[in-house]
Amino acid sequence: MSKHFKKKSAETKQEIPTASLPDIIFMLLIFFMVTTVLRETTVQVRTTLPRAEALTKIDQKRLLSYIYIGPRKLSNNRLGETAVQIDDALVEDISTIRTIMYRKLVEQPKLIVSLRVDEDSEMGIVTDVQQELREAGTLRINYSSRRDVAGGTGSG
């Protein structure tokens, strides 16, 4: 009697078929590849960074917050007026920067503001932004620049 039972239970397969698992995972991967947006902010202004020699590295990327300053990119590769961009949006009114940056500072007290400024910009707007940063209390800044490939600066 008991032998009969044993045989029956052995016959039923208890394993999940694993042959299709790679396919399922592959499909999942493709799904995520298609749907995820890798939160790279689309920079709406041109920022060709200036070259410098006295560079320091910032490895703590999560402390960084970017402010982009440069001429606006328009259609047909034309460039417009100089604009300021924080995160995804262009800043219409410079005086709103203090509120935006203050909120970021509350979230991250060790905030470093990386100024990605186009090399052809004028100092006037950079100073205005810096004054706003002082108002907000975000004092640690970093002028983002590229390594000078040629070596010697000071061509005059």
């Binding site: 410098a52 006295a54 560079l55 320091t56 590295k57 910032i58 490895d59 990327k61 960084l64 470093i112 990386s114 100024l115 810096q130 940063l133 002082r134 108002e135 209390g137 004092l139 640690r140 800044i141 970093n142 002028y143 983002s144 620049s145 590229r146 390594r147």
Partner: peptide, 13 residues
Amino acid sequence: DVDTGIGMVLPPK
């Protein structure tokens, strides 16, 4: 890629 730049500390208000 690591972000490089010239660090500065702004004077407080």
